[in-house]
Nucleic acid binder design. Structure first.
Length: 426
RNA sequence: GCGGGAUUAGUAUAGCGGUAGUACGUUUGCUUCCCAAGCAAGAGGUACGAGUUCAACUCUCGUAUCCCGCACCA
């Protein structure tokens, strides 16, 4: 994991947040290559789950929401816990989970002080006056954006049920202790959708999405034996969930930990919003059958955790001609740079000019980033591209000037192939 | 939040109460006909703030961040 963190900074994937001021706990910034990789990840996800499906509607809802939303969703109650601290061993525990007179950690009696409120939601003020009435929260999950727009989407598109509302966006949680690089941060991105259906269908669809989630992890290159399911027992489930499966990836040094989840949220959210807002959340089937409040299956993925899983999983070391080589074996669709172009020698103007020409034409034809490099020698450039996971390198040499062919070098095999410029496609 | 450890250049690391070094990377020039070659020159650092001292990167305290445990993690 340390190697990955170091490479991430050195090569411009991930920097510590607010770096020049000593950082800010639980925040990281995506550098140019990290941003490209994340963008590709999200775009693949949209292709996989949203685009091309007639029954999927993507939205992008506001991070600031009416505080009543969090009343209805239950977060106002459950994200805010009274904590007590033991005066002897300094353990912090939920006041409603412990015997007031005896600390379960150190066993001493009568050591607890006053209970203090701890709120996992980030608080802010809407408008210039900071008072009770202006208090708002940064959303602790993106799901409520879909629920509060359920009626809007139904009214505008009259979809046939089942259908889904999808969203990719940031959420914020004031974690007590952010940890493990990108794994637990206070600001993070989620890709998820709410799939609305008749309650009679939930088991069938739950199973369908469960399979599709496995296909997704396979699609982004995570091997089957590194993905594990964990059925979440009732006492550990979220307040809204009747069944939850966590999907765990085997991270280096962390071990198996969550990269996605599948929850059956029942009609908990829509029913509560109906109650709190007074709006009718019933879906009226077009065949005239009984209106009902739809139930919801929610497949959810942490963007940053999927990113970290992909990065960890692709980190490879091998040897080429006795020299150690580090490369990122990223799936082609995810690689931040699709292809790099070099002149074999940079002090031969005719090679540089020809390579420039190839570079410019590839910039037009390739869907994704094309990188130019004429630094050092050819071997260094290959290694540099290996380290950022570029699947192919194109080298222009003296033969190119004669026969319009170039060398295409493969990242994973390091093998080279001679190809006509006109036949290049990546 | 608690307890312990750490923090020296972009990265990885030496070192010392008295001018901060190495490797790789990086910049410029030369050279080089396919996997980190070579030559020359250059830029870049003691996390932040106090204190002790003639003098602090070094010792002390505080702050921040990271790592390891605990707790938390809807």
């Amino acid at each position: 994991m340390e190697d990955i963190v170091s490479l991430a900074k050195r090569r411009g994937f991930i920097y510590p947040g607010s770096d020049i001021y000593g950082g800010l706990s639980g925040t990281y910034d995506y550098g140019p290559l990290g941003t490209l990789l994340k963008r590709n990840l999200i775009s693949q996800w949209l292709k996989f789950f949203v685009d091309g499906w007639a029954d999927m509607y993507q939205i992008d809802s506001a991070i600031l929401m009416n505080p009543k939303v969090w009343q209805a969703s239950g977060h106002a109650d459950t994200f805010s816990d009274p904590l007590v601290e033991c005066g002897n061993c300094h353990s912090r525990l939920r006041a409603d989970h412990v015997d007031k007179n005896k600390c379960p950690v150190c066993g001493k009696e009568n050591t607890f002080g006053e209970a203090r409120q701890f709120n996992m939601m980030f608080k802010t003020s809407v408008g210039p006056v900071d008072d009770e009435a202006s208090t708002a929260y940064l959303r602790p999950e993106t799901a409520q954006g879909m629920f509060v727009n359920f009626k809007n989407v139904v009214d505008t598109f009259s979809p046939n049920i089942p259908f889904g509302i999808a969203q990719v966006g940031r959420a914020f949680r004031n974690e007590i202790s952010p940890r493990d690089f990108l794994f637990r941060t206070r600001e993070f991105e989620i890709m998820e959708f709410e799939y609305f259906l008749h309650p009679s269908q939930w088991e069938e669809k739950f199973d369908k999405w469960r399979k599709d989630m496995h296909s997704w992890f396979k699609h982004i290159g995570l091997p089957e034996d590194k993905i594990k399911e964990a059925e979440v027992p009732a006492e550990d489930r979220a307040h809204y969930s009747k069944r939850t499966i966590d999907f765990l990836y085997d991270f280096p040094s962390l071990g198996f930990d969550e990269v996605g989840g599948l929850a059956y949220r029942t009609d908990f959210d829509l029913k509560n919003h109906q109650e709190h807002s007074g709006k009718d959340m019933n879906y009226r089937p077009k065949d005239g059958s009984e209106p009902f409040i739809p139930h919801v299956i929610e497949p959810t993925f942490g963007v940053d955790r999927n990113f970290l899983a992909v990065l960890s999983n692709s980190y490879m070391q091998d040897e080429v001609e006795g020299e150690k080589r580090v490369y990122l074996k990223l799936p082609k669709e995810l690689a931040p740079v699709k292809v790099a172009v070099f002149p074999l020698l940079k002090n031969k103007p005719e090679l540089v000019a020809k390579a420039r020409e190839v570079y410019k034409s590839l910039q037009k034809s390739v869907d994704g980033e094309v990188m130019w490099d004429d630094n050092g020698n050819i071997g260094k450039r290959y290694r540099r591209q290996d380290e950022i996971g570029t699947p192919y390198c194109v080298t222009v040499d003296f033969d190119t000037l004669v026969d319009e062919t170039v060398t295409v070098r493969n990242r994973d095999t390091t093998e080279q192939e001679r190809k006509k410029i006109t036949e290049l496609s990546f």
